[in-house]
Computed example of a mutant assay.
Amino acid sequence: MAGQGGSSAAPQRGSGRGVVISDDWPGYSLDLFTYPQHYYGDLEYVLIPHGIIVDRTECLAKDIMQDIGDNNIVVLCVLKGGYKFCADLVEHIKTLSRNSERSISMKVEFVRLKSYHHDQSTQDMQIIGGEDLSKLTGKSALIVEDIIGTGRTMKALLNNIEKYKPKMIKVASLLVKRTSQPDGYRPDYYGFEIPNLFVVGYALDYNEHFRDLNHICVINDNGKGKYKV
């Protein structure tokens, strides 16, 4: 699987549960894919094409079914970036459940976490909709997130949820970003481990733009400047 720059090795399945995309992975040329015309000139390259995202999401659904099937689960979707991944993951789990002797009963709740300003993570994290977390008391919870970097935001959310004494908490994230903290937080399930890049698409945004981009792409300086607020 060649990228835009030639013969660098394709992403590999890691020893954990995610596909590891190396720092020297050149990605795919934008010319190979369709994407909204209003983003022409705003992106460097496609890091993960939409089809590969869909396939990995189905694999994660199988892992989740294998581990926590026969449970009643409260799915806690972290908005806004997690809505697309969550919807697709839940749909895959529902399909597997219908065709399996094991089944998962799911209810979906929503919470918003705010910790980014432009492309920089901030020290402060706000939980919006946290009053609904009391519904997790005594329940099995699956938190669904779009991307985890340092893990600081997720740890803060988990600390908040644990106050309500849920029966079980599992975390699924589409992306895990490699940071300068090698011992940082790792979710129970994740699709891809990616370099420390700012990525957009598949509902991941930059100041509310790029959510309508199907592929996960790396934004360029022109895009950051155009949509800076």
Rank of each mutant, 00 (worst) to 15 (best):
Asp67Ser: 14
Arg98Lys: 14
Glu44Thr: 02
Ile68Ala: 07
Tyr189Gly: 09
Ser8Cys: 09
Met1Leu: 08
Ser15Met: 12
Ile64His: 11
Ile52Cys: 09
Leu204Gly: 02
Leu204Tyr: 03
Pro26Arg: 09
Ile48Ser: 03
Gln181Tyr: 10
His209Asp: 00
Asp221His: 04
Ile128Pro: 01
Asn207Pro: 00
Val144His: 06
Asn222Trp: 00
Cys217Phe: 04
Val90Cys: 09
Val171Thr: 15
Ala2Ile: 08
Ile148Asp: 06
Leu47Pro: 00
Ile169Asn: 00
Asn99Ile: 09
Met168Leu: 15
Thr179His: 04
His209Thr: 02
Gly223Glu: 10
Val200Cys: 01
Asp183Ile: 04
Ile216Val: 14
Met154Gln: 11
Ala10His: 04
Gly5Tyr: 13
Ser15Arg: 07
Asn72Gln: 11
Lys170Phe: 06
Ala172Leu: 01
Pro187Lys: 05
Phe110Ser: 09
Ser22Gly: 08
Lys84Arg: 14
Ile48Asn: 02
Lys170Tyr: 07
Asp124Cys: 03
Lys226Gln: 09
Pro49Asn: 15
Ala9Phe: 06
Asn214Gln: 13
Gly149Cys: 10
Ile53Trp: 06
Val75Ile: 15
His209Tyr: 07
Ala172Phe: 03
Leu30Asn: 12
Arg186Pro: 00
Arg211Gln: 04
Gly191Pro: 03
Tyr185His: 05
Ala172Glu: 05
Tyr202Met: 03
Ile52Gly: 06
Lys228Asp: 07
Asp23Cys: 08
Val74Ala: 06
Thr150Tyr: 07
Glu208Asp: 15
Ala10Met: 09
Asp42His: 02
Val111Pro: 00
Val20Tyr: 11
Asn207Leu: 09
Asp88Tyr: 03
Gly225Ser: 14
Lys167Thr: 04
Asn214Asp: 15
Thr57Asp: 11
Asn207Arg: 04
Ala87Trp: 01
Asn214Cys: 07
Lys62Cys: 08
Asn99Ala: 12
Thr57Glu: 13
Val200Phe: 03
Val75Thr: 11
Asp188Asn: 15
Asp183Phe: 06
Asp63Met: 14
Cys86Ala: 15
Lys62Asp: 09
Gln120Asp: 05
Gly16Leu: 05
Cys59His: 14
Gly5Gln: 13
Gly184Val: 03
Arg56His: 10
Gly69Ser: 10
Asp55Glu: 15
Met1Phe: 10
Leu60Thr: 15
Arg186Phe: 02
Ser8Lys: 15
Glu193Tyr: 01
Leu157Phe: 06
Ile48Gly: 04
Glu193Asp: 07
